[in-house]
Design a protein around this nucleic acid. Sequence first.
DNA 1: ATCATTTCTTGATGTAAATCAAGGCATAGG
DNA 2: CCTATGCCTTGATTTACATCAAGAAATGAT
Lengths: 157, 157
Amino acid sequence: MKKIKVKKGTILQRKGDINTKVYYVEKGLLRSYTIDEKGKEHIYMFGPESWLVTDNCDSKDPCQLFIDAIENTTINVASKKEVLKQDPDLNPILRRLNKMQNRIVMLMSSSAKERYEHFIKTYPNITQRVPLKMIASYLGITPEALSRVRNELSKKK
Amino acid sequence: MKKIKVKKGTILQRKGDINTKVYYVEKGLLRSYTIDEKGKEHIYMFGPESWLVTDNCDSKDPCQLFIDAIENTTINVASKKEVLKQDPDLNPILRRLNKMQNRIVMLMSSSAKERYEHFIKTYPNITQRVPLKMIASYLGITPEALSRVRNELSKKK
DNA sequence: ATCATTTCTTGATGTAAATCAAGGCATAGG
DNA sequence: CCTATGCCTTGATTTACATCAAGAAATGAT
């Protein structure tokens, strides 16, 4: 855990980095965000004073988020291991954080079709077990819209 | 931690309940969801085999989610205290889970205006510190749309 | 102060998805 | 078996928001 000061505009983490850190903001403002295929930024969170900013991924996996400083900022940097104290019981919670992060990014940036495609990849087995209208409700779209998306996808093949 | 079996359709938790539990799904399928002002359901998550389903709120606060069984389901019920082992270091993580849960529900069910209103309530101080286009990016809308929303809100007052 | 860059606003137009509505299939219950 | 209820699809219309475009205001650099 070491304290550093960074100037406005400094990039602390890029998408794809591994062994990413946890940043505790003492003063200033960080932001984490993704950049989609069209080059558009989607801010995942702001990190003002006293906030913890990090990518909720395993420290050995490539991360998904960029993190940079919106203001001159004083932060404490820690490794994920330090923060988590090697407690294996925390892993389910981390996996969940990671899933939630993905979902937020998805909801902010994807079309109905993309969301559905992602859903069937992530939960292939559930698709058969629940009515279509519940999947629509999970995706944040109407049953009609999902029906049309499906229709279109089946034609394509 | 006790094991119970519930039939398809059983409601395990209603919005507003306090001291809500953690459900570990052994077999079957649960779902958690909200119901908005218009009576529309928004599924927050599905809980198939081996998943943990819970409302990420403090056990003394009224919860936001309904939880029910989509299939006949065998679950292990635990209190939140049991699961968290009274570890105070986990509180920041829980607060974060709660924030993420709120954000997901918000992204699924709210209009641009509602999201913005929620944002200024949640981060009143940040509004002054970041350019409008970043707030738009956080809300998942365009800067133009946010500009118009703001315009409208200022007229109303 | 001047010029350049970025930010915000406003208008016109386009589009994805919502809403409204109706018909066809199932499945379940009598 | 028949009927009722819920589920899915399809079409017509509406709407919220995106996109495109241009100008005004603010911010920063020299």
